[in-house]
Nucleic acid binder design. Sequence first.
DNA 1: AATAAAATTTTACAAATGATAAATAAAACA
DNA 2: TGTTTTATTTATCATTTGTAAAATTTTATT
Lengths: 187, 187
Amino acid sequence: MQLTQILEQVYPLPATALEKITRRVVEVGFEKNHLLMRAGRIERNLYFIKSGIVRAYAHTEDHEITFWFGGEGETIVSMNSYVTGKPGYEHIELLEPCVLFALRAEELQQLYQEDLQIANWGRKFAEGELIKTEERLISRQFKTAAQRYKELLADNPGLLQRVALCHIASYLGITQVSLSRIRSEIR
Amino acid sequence: MQLTQILEQVYPLPATALEKITRRVVEVGFEKNHLLMRAGRIERNLYFIKSGIVRAYAHTEDHEITFWFGGEGETIVSMNSYVTGKPGYEHIELLEPCVLFALRAEELQQLYQEDLQIANWGRKFAEGELIKTEERLISRQFKTAAQRYKELLADNPGLLQRVALCHIASYLGITQVSLSRIRSEIR
DNA sequence: AATAAAATTTTACAAATGATAAATAAAACA
DNA sequence: TGTTTTATTTATCATTTGTAAAATTTTATT
């Protein structure tokens, strides 16, 4: 997937604005299982996923939860770190070998201050992520774990082939044992 | 709480930008229990809360869940409707008599296209709401209902005096019976 | 103050989910 | 291919949370 395409699916940008971003982006590749971001650090980059799939997770001593999957065309941001400037709480792990477009957060902040359309791009990006997150929060309350599993499969076919079930269970907010039960009941 | 103060706690704005917004805002008052927004409609306004407290809820036939409380200084947006232009899924109900600052969504969209600092204000607003929502989603998985209740009280003392327990239970993602159990165990 | 209405708590029982460990299946590797 | 390692499923039991209904408390109204 190309960078301009990724950017424009968030918000259409004039050529000049696209060029300002493209000029500051570097293409990088990482192997499977690479830890792209670590909790507790201030993250200095954003990434756009050209190919591959990643997960974001947070953990305490005993638990670990996967709260986001990112695939081709999606944007990897330590939202907390990017917004507040403080260390983030999430780790980003590559679940496949990935090709990413890297952009320094500082440079994007600079562009937000210079370019009206890029500022509106940033707004649209955050707004889009917000409604997705809000919908997930609500769906967790309205729907049973089985319903949420079926919907995830429907919205995201192929995910099952690319991601370990333990991560899917965690994403759905249940244990792996519960997910196994749900899967056996469906068949 | 004054409008400029509300706006600037999201993102500092130059006087000219503040003036552009202020000029388009109208102060309105509603009685307790007024339904400010209804699901299924395209919402044409945003509101800033000068005083009072409100809740956002969504429902299916049998269930209803409260997923947000807004108090003084907060912004009421049907995020879904505002972002996608389609009808929203939330109702907004006033839990107290409120004084609100109303702004037409269309006019704000216009300002986003003219004023760099206002576009950045919109970006910061969405980013802030996003991390709050993301944190809630994660906390729902990491923490027990009892912990979430205690944290809500700690972060938001006074809420208990202003909001019915059935809404708090719903917000925490549990039934009212469960919340009663938690409350009796704490004492 | 007395009554009615609404909100909250309590009780009893059912259903869903979690924890742990063992069994099985799948994947990775020599 | 055979062996080891890792991932997933199954089984058992404990715990949490939900449902429904009744009891109690609080609030509103006459």
